[in-house]
Lab assay of single mutants.
Amino acid sequence: HRQALGERLYPRVQAMQPAFASKITGMLLELSPAQLLLLLASEDSLRARVDEAMELII
């Protein structure tokens, strides 16, 4: 289940942060499945989480 969510998330994360897409997707997969579904449904929520992840990385 998580694998399938990751496969759906990755291209969207890659479009926002290509250099760190794998790392960010891995970080996002730590969230609950319900939270992941919310990110897939909301571009704004996904962008906010990706921005948060980038702050942790750099």
Rank of each mutant, 00 (worst) to 15 (best):
9 L>N: 00
1 H>L: 09
13 V>L: 03
16 M>S: 03
4 A>T: 15
3 Q>G: 08
54 M>E: 01
17 Q>I: 11
23 K>E: 09
41 A>P: 01
58 I>W: 14
51 D>S: 06
10 Y>D: 02
39 L>E: 02
24 I>C: 00
32 S>W: 08
31 L>E: 08
38 L>R: 07
49 R>A: 09
42 S>D: 06
23 K>I: 13
58 I>Q: 10
44 D>I: 12
25 T>L: 08
26 G>C: 12
26 G>T: 12
15 A>I: 11
5 L>V: 08
41 A>E: 12
33 P>A: 11
33 P>I: 15
25 T>M: 15
6 G>C: 13
35 Q>L: 15
23 K>W: 05
48 A>H: 07
1 H>W: 07
42 S>R: 03
41 A>C: 05
14 Q>N: 09
31 L>K: 04
47 R>H: 04
1 H>R: 06
32 S>V: 07
14 Q>W: 07
16 M>I: 10
26 G>Q: 12
3 Q>S: 13
22 S>A: 15
29 L>I: 10
31 L>N: 03
42 S>I: 03
50 V>Q: 00
32 S>A: 13
40 L>S: 03
55 E>K: 08
11 P>M: 15
45 S>P: 01
2 R>C: 10
16 M>G: 02
43 E>R: 06
18 P>L: 04
31 L>C: 06
19 A>Y: 11
31 L>D: 07
55 E>G: 14
2 R>Y: 14
39 L>G: 01
23 K>G: 05
51 D>P: 01
11 P>H: 10
29 L>N: 03
48 A>M: 11
34 A>N: 09
47 R>N: 03
22 S>H: 10
33 P>K: 10
5 L>Y: 11
46 L>N: 00
6 G>M: 15
28 L>T: 00
4 A>N: 13
41 A>S: 13
2 R>A: 12
10 Y>E: 03
24 I>M: 01
58 I>N: 13
41 A>K: 05
16 M>W: 04
32 S>C: 08
9 L>I: 09
42 S>G: 06
14 Q>D: 07
54 M>Y: 07
6 G>V: 14
53 A>Y: 13
47 R>M: 08
52 E>L: 09
30 E>H: 06
56 L>D: 10
30 E>W: 05
10 Y>H: 11
11 P>Q: 04
36 L>N: 02
11 P>T: 15
16 M>N: 02
26 G>A: 11
7 E>C: 08
44 D>V: 12
37 L>I: 13
45 S>I: 05
39 L>F: 03
35 Q>D: 06
34 A>I: 12
15 A>C: 07
16 M>Q: 05
27 M>E: 02
56 L>N: 11
36 L>I: 09
11 P>G: 08
7 E>I: 08
32 S>Y: 11
1 H>Q: 07
28 L>Y: 01
48 A>F: 09
30 E>Q: 09
26 G>P: 06
15 A>E: 12
53 A>P: 00
31 L>P: 00
34 A>V: 13
33 P>G: 05
8 R>I: 15
46 L>K: 00
10 Y>G: 03
47 R>F: 03
11 P>N: 15
51 D>H: 07
15 A>L: 12
40 L>W: 03
21 A>N: 01
9 L>A: 01
28 L>H: 00
8 R>D: 08
49 R>D: 04
33 P>M: 15
18 P>C: 04
20 F>T: 02
37 L>N: 11
6 G>P: 09
35 Q>A: 12
10 Y>Q: 03
22 S>Q: 09
44 D>K: 09
31 L>R: 04
5 L>N: 04
56 L>M: 06
40 L>A: 02
52 E>N: 04
17 Q>H: 08
8 R>K: 14
41 A>V: 13
43 E>Y: 10
6 G>T: 07
29 L>A: 02
53 A>L: 13
25 T>N: 04
57 I>D: 01
46 L>W: 01
54 M>T: 06
48 A>G: 08
9 L>Y: 02
28 L>I: 09
17 Q>C: 09
5 L>I: 13
15 A>V: 11
51 D>A: 15
24 I>T: 00
8 R>W: 12
21 A>Q: 02
10 Y>M: 10
2 R>E: 13
23 K>H: 05
2 R>K: 15
54 M>G: 01
3 Q>W: 05
11 P>I: 15
9 L>W: 03
30 E>C: 09
32 S>E: 09
8 R>T: 07
30 E>P: 01
9 L>M: 05
43 E>P: 07
54 M>S: 06
58 I>R: 09
53 A>Q: 07
54 M>D: 00
11 P>Y: 15
2 R>F: 09
37 L>R: 06
50 V>H: 00
30 E>R: 08
22 S>W: 05
51 D>C: 06
36 L>S: 01
8 R>N: 08
17 Q>P: 01
18 P>A: 06
54 M>C: 07
16 M>R: 02
43 E>T: 07
6 G>L: 15
35 Q>F: 13
35 Q>R: 06
36 L>F: 04
22 S>I: 13
13 V>Y: 01
37 L>C: 08
57 I>Y: 03
42 S>W: 03
46 L>Q: 00
53 A>M: 07
53 A>N: 04
36 L>G: 02
11 P>W: 05
35 Q>S: 07
30 E>F: 11
18 P>R: 06
18 P>E: 07
3 Q>T: 08
27 M>L: 07
17 Q>N: 08
43 E>G: 05
30 E>V: 06
50 V>G: 00
4 A>S: 14
35 Q>T: 06
28 L>N: 00
16 M>K: 02
24 I>N: 00
41 A>H: 08
14 Q>H: 10
3 Q>F: 03
17 Q>G: 03
16 M>Y: 15
7 E>P: 03
16 M>A: 03
34 A>H: 08
57 I>R: 03
38 L>C: 08
4 A>M: 13
50 V>F: 01
21 A>T: 04
37 L>M: 15
13 V>I: 14
58 I>Y: 09
26 G>F: 12
52 E>Y: 08
33 P>L: 12
27 M>G: 02
22 S>D: 11
9 L>G: 01
50 V>S: 01
14 Q>I: 12
9 L>R: 00
42 S>A: 06
35 Q>K: 07
54 M>Q: 03
41 A>I: 10
17 Q>F: 15
12 R>D: 03
52 E>P: 00
